[in-house]
């Protein structure tokens, strides 16, 4: 089963995704994509690590190239999150930019083959005035397209609003 969880910043996606994953079959793998580039991201990473520490997750930190991860057994994989993954794949440190839409979909397709349940956390970044430079505009547009492509082929899509899951497609497992 493949589940896409979306929502704005601070809407409770991570907490909900982890609760969901805990109720699904082990082994459970947390696939972390956040690049620890400053104090603020380290604080966020530590908060997420603390939330997971008692839940028996194996954590794999991978900023790019999710298609070639070797998993020892099928189980539940929680990928967090698309917005970091896209930024990591799309922009390099020298300021270069690549078209990574097909690559990311291919990598996630391989992930889908490697586990029984895949939960992907993504983000809503398109609901503001949208007056950005071309590069940021391409990022917003690409994330929107990736979200649409995943939503189309995944079994379940839910939006988190104030910690409340609103199911947009399919059904969440175990009565959530």
């Amino acid at each position: 089963m493949r589940i896409l969880l979306t929502g704005g910043s601070g809407c409770g996606k991570s907490t909900f995704a982890e609760r969901l994953a805990r109720a699904l079959p082990a082994p459970r793998c947390y696939l972390a994509t956040m690049r620890p580039y400053d104090e603020e991201s380290l604080v966020k990473i530590k908060r997420h690590q603390k939330q997971r520490s008692d839940a028996g997750f194996l954590t794999i930190e991978r900023e790019t190239d999710l298609g070639n991860i070797e998993f020892s057994a099928h189980g539940t994989v929680l990928l967090e999150c698309m917005c970091n993954l896209l930024a990591n794949e799309m922009f390099d440190e020298a300021g270069g930019e690549r078209d990574v839409y097909d690559k990311i979909l291919l990598d996630i397709g391989k992930l889908e083959q490697s586990c029984d349940t895949l939960i992907v956390v993504t983000n809503e970044v398109g609901s503001d005035d949208g007056t950005y430079d071309e590069s940021t505009a391409r990022y917003i547009e690409t994330l929107g397209r990736l979200n649409r492509a995943l939503a189309k082929r995944f079994d379940c899509v839910a939006e988190l609003v104030c910690g409340i899951p609103l199911v947009l497609k399919g059904q969440l497992p175990t009565g959530e």
Binding site: G8, S9, E124, V125, S127, D128, D129, T136, I140, V161
Partner: peptide, 8 residues
């Protein structure tokens, strides 16, 4: 307001 659904 829901304020979290724009660009960071």
């Amino acid at each position: 307001n829901e304020v979290g659904s724009g660009i960071i």
